[in-house]
Design a protein around this nucleic acid. Structure first.
Ligand SMILES: [Mn+2]
Ligand SMILES: [Mn+2]
Ligand SMILES: [Mn+2]
Ligand SMILES: [Mn+2]
Lengths: 219, 219
DNA sequence: CAAATTTGTTAGAATAGTCTAACAAAATAT
DNA sequence: ATATTTTGTTAGACTATTCTAACAAATTTG
């Protein structure tokens, strides 16, 4: 059984590989807030357990076993976040820190019961997919709002940044998953976009924000 | 912040003191499944943090600070057990192991929300009192069934043993908290008691069982 | 390309939590 | 009141996780 520390390294490696294609020691160290020698030595430990492959000075690669282990931890994390929001009335900006702890609980039935109670959700409160019990992840092929064109209509389906700060920004603008946007115009100078949604007739969203909103465009 | 290990030692010390009046190093080691030198050295560590007092060859005593810390962990444990039973449909025999892990989560709001959702319960699924937010415990002055006399009627209010084995035994006899018992007779040879409850006209309960059933006698 | 910077590695040390072996004190039994 | 048993302590060692300092490799820059 992997320790909590090892589980957090696995998750970090998994996320770095998905977001950047590969995981360097320095990225890993940064992500986890440890020194490079610490990350280096933990990578060796994970390799001994067959969870990753690694050669000096090369990027770290998770094995299939490592990927599955990581995905199953992420499954527990995302089920927990969804449970906290749907069944315990937490805000989407409050749940990550709690899930970061709950994901390490060893109690399969606890998470299965959450899953059942929620009717087997496929995404978490930030729109990220929940891996299945085999650790398989259904890829959502979403575009970012930046890629949409004036005149199009779209619905917010997920976020590429789920930091508390970004979520607080979205809360302050009444933006949430499911919000339907009409794209009015795009400023070519700074790539900011003007959109309409809900009660808002004209809201301007910076490029930074548009890139982080993942949408499904209406046909 | 006490580590998970330290928290488990605090709880063990608290329970030993309550059940036996004092906590020896060997009891503590036994309770936690560690060697005596290990318990001995952890006691020194806790003392350095002001959580217990201890002199060589004397029993260990929790300080007020230590008692409060222990009670607050027990609060999280018992709220969790009650939540699992009341809101997540677990059996009373399944929840202890999960609560043993969840009790170490640092997220005050998580436990407050559980508490609210359940309407601020005062006892856990095994009838043990839930300490309040200040770490105060309301003492229930219950008798064991062994102390009751033939002719009396009583209700099962708590258990002095909540092991999975005892709970399974109770399940198999349809005995649970709230079950109303009529005491028909007591065998002076082996202290076993014959009782009636629910559909059962005559059930015999051994002394071992009677001692572990804590009851409230009807006036 | 050579210099400078960034990234990665090794070595050595620290802390937390655990163990076993050996010994010492206290409690119990003869 | 001894002898025996139980309980408790010390010493020394081990693993896991982390750090800093020093150095080495790889990459980027001018
Ligand atoms: Mn999260
Ligand atoms: Mn975590
Ligand atoms: Mn319990
Ligand atoms: Mn515990």
């Amino acid at each position: 059984m992997a320790s909590i520390t090892e589980e957090n390294y696995l998750k970090a490696l998994f996320n770095l590989s998905n977001n950047q294609g590969e995981a360097s020691i320095s990225d890993l160290a940064n992500q986890l807030g440890v020194s490079m020698p610490t990350a280096n030595s933990m990578v060796k430990t994970l390799q001994k357990q067959g969870l990753c492959r690694y050669e000096k000075y090369k990027p770290v690669v998770l094995t299939e076993q490592g990927k599955k282990a990581a995905a199953l931890i992420i499954r527990k994390h995302r089920l927990t976040e969804m449970f906290l929001v749907n069944k315990m009335d937490f805000g989407w900006e409050e749940v990550h820190e709690i899930a970061e702890q709950v994901e390490h609980i060893h109690a399969p039935k606890f998470f299965e019961r959450m899953d059942e109670m929620m009717g087997f959700p496929t995404v978490d409160p930030h729109g990220s997919p929940i891996p299945d019990k085999q650790g398989r992840i259904q890829e959502l092929h979403l575009k970012s709002l930046s890629e949409a064109a004036p005149g199009q209509e779209a619905v917010i389906a997920a976020l590429s940044d789920s930091s508390a700060e970004f979520l607080a920004y979205l809360n302050s603008r009444q933006l949430s998953l499911g919000t339907e946007l009409k794209i009015l115009s795009k400023e070519s100078f700074d790539q900011s976009m003007t959109v309409a949604y809900g009660e808002k007739e004209r809201e301007s969203l910076s490029q930074k924000v548009c890139e982080k909103l993942l949408i499904r465009i209406f046909d």
